[in-house]
């Protein structure tokens, strides 16, 4: 049984969306910092932060501080705001991306998204890792056949020599999948049933109410 304090995927998605809106409504640096800390702490206590994100944040800070006109404290405050917003969005987004995509797709279909689109989403999540391993294999095959993959001109070469094998495998994959899905009656009726229902608990409703209140509060306060 799912614990009643676990949020539905869709609620989590709404939370992230509302959170990002609030980030832009709020201007106060202290509140912004407080808002940023929530997903940041939730993320770093569970996952490793890539260096890329931090370097990118520093670059954004630098560019903003450099190009904004005004005295130093204004410059720093302005750039800090931008960076906190950026990191808030990135970390909340990354948190959400760690959610089970299957659950999210099913939650959407439960809320009325036509199953053709919902199942396409599921299929996409199923295929992405396959395509990425396939690209890696093609790259390895190129290196083994003496294509040098270092430097800019070689990058172009690699793209050129990756395209056809990749497209060909994709087409073959599409063929097999069509057979597999049609063979199991995908698309026979306008509706389809779902084994699992994605449930909205009382906690979900309470949470959504809370987020709505937070959004309204932030809006009213910034006026």
């Amino acid at each position: 049984m799912r614990s009643s304090f676990r949020l539905n995927s869709l609620t989590k998605f709404l939370t992230v969306a509302v959170y990002c809106v609030i980030l832009f409504i709020v201007d106060d640096l202290v509140v912004l910092a407080g808002l940023f800390v929530i997903p940041f702490v939730m993320y770093v206590t569970r996952f490793r932060v890539s260096r890329f994100v931090m370097i990118f944040a520093v670059i954004i800070f630098g560019i903003n501080a450099f190009f904004i006109e005004g005295d130093l404290s204004y410059k720093v405050e302005y750039a800090l705001r931008i960076v906190l917003r950026f990191l808030g969005i990135v970390f909340s987004g990354m948190l959400f991306s760690r959610e089970d995509p299957n659950e999210f797709a099913h939650a959407l279909m439960n809320c009325g998204l036509p199953y053709r689109y919902g199942m396409t989403m599921v299929l996409t999540f199923r295929l992405i890792p396959l395509f990425s391993t396939e690209s890696m294999m093609i790259k390895k095959a190129q290196m083994a056949r003496g294509i040098n993959l270092e430097g800019v001109s070689s990058l172009l070469n690699s793209v050129r020599y990756t395209f056809f094998p990749w497209i060909y495998s994709a087409l073959e994959r599409a063929d097999a999948l069509t057979l597999s899905m049609e063979g199991r009656c995908f698309g026979i009726y306008r509706k389809r049933t779902f084994r699992k229902q994605s449930v909205f608990s009382l906690f979900d409703y309470a949470w959504i109410l809370f987020m709505a209140a937070a959004l309204a509060g932030a809006g009213w306060w910034s006026l």
């Binding site: 299957n102 199942m119 599921v122 999948l177 057979l179 597999s180 009656c185 389809r192 084994r195």
Partner: peptide, 19 residues
Amino acid sequence: AQICTLNVEDEIAFGLENL
């Protein structure tokens, strides 16, 4: 190539749910 969902039960349920 013929698996189109993310977990085993969903995969086996696929045809039945379509029906």
